[in-house]
Amino acid sequence: MEAGRVVAPPTASPRHALDLSARVFVAGSRGLVGAAVGRELRRKGFTNVVGPTSAELDLRERGAVRDWFADVRPDVVVLAAARVGGIRANATRPTEFLSDNLRIQVNVLDAALEQRVERLLFLGSSCIYPKFAEQPIREEALLTGPLEPTNNTYAIAKIAGILQVQAVRRQHGLPWISAMPTNLYGPWDNFHPEHSHVLPSLVRRFHEAKEAGISRVLNWGSGTPRREFLHVDDLARACLHLLEYYDAGDPVNVGTGTDVTVRELAELVAETVGYRGSIEWDPSQPDGTPRKLLDVSRLTALGWTPRIGLREGIAQTYDWYLEHLGSGAVRQ
Rank of each mutant, 00 (worst) to 15 (best):
319 D>V: 09
102 L>V: 01
97 F>G: 09
329 A>H: 07
281 W>G: 14
324 H>A: 09
171 Q>M: 05
170 R>C: 09
222 S>Q: 07
65 V>M: 02
179 A>P: 12
167 A>H: 12
123 L>W: 03
331 R>G: 10
84 V>P: 02
82 A>C: 13
171 Q>R: 07
187 P>Y: 14
35 A>H: 04
330 V>I: 03
210 K>M: 08
32 L>S: 10
282 D>P: 06
192 H>G: 10
101 N>K: 04
264 E>D: 15
266 A>P: 12
38 G>E: 12
148 E>K: 04
217 V>R: 05
27 A>S: 13
313 G>T: 11
107 N>A: 04
156 I>N: 01
13 S>H: 08
202 L>N: 03
260 V>C: 06
44 K>Y: 05
123 L>P: 06
25 F>E: 06
241 H>E: 00
94 P>Y: 03
283 P>R: 06
89 A>R: 14
204 R>V: 07
81 A>R: 11
327 S>D: 14
54 S>Q: 04
105 Q>H: 05
241 H>G: 00
113 L>P: 13
181 P>H: 05
303 G>K: 09
274 G>S: 02
1 M>L: 15
237 R>G: 15
104 I>T: 09
90 N>I: 08
140 E>H: 15
22 A>E: 13
103 R>K: 05
129 Y>K: 04
65 V>Y: 02
102 L>C: 03
154 Y>S: 12
195 H>E: 02
107 N>M: 10
252 V>I: 12
83 R>Q: 06
71 D>M: 10
34 G>E: 07
109 L>V: 06
309 G>C: 13
157 A>E: 11
268 L>P: 14
136 P>F: 10
213 G>Y: 14
160 A>M: 00
82 A>N: 05
224 T>K: 14
276 R>F: 10
9 P>D: 14
163 L>V: 13
249 G>C: 08
51 G>V: 12
121 L>C: 10
181 P>R: 08
185 Y>P: 10
277 G>N: 05
14 P>Y: 00
241 H>D: 00
201 S>N: 14
90 N>Y: 02
129 Y>R: 15
172 H>K: 08
256 T>P: 10
303 G>F: 03
113 L>D: 06
46 F>R: 07
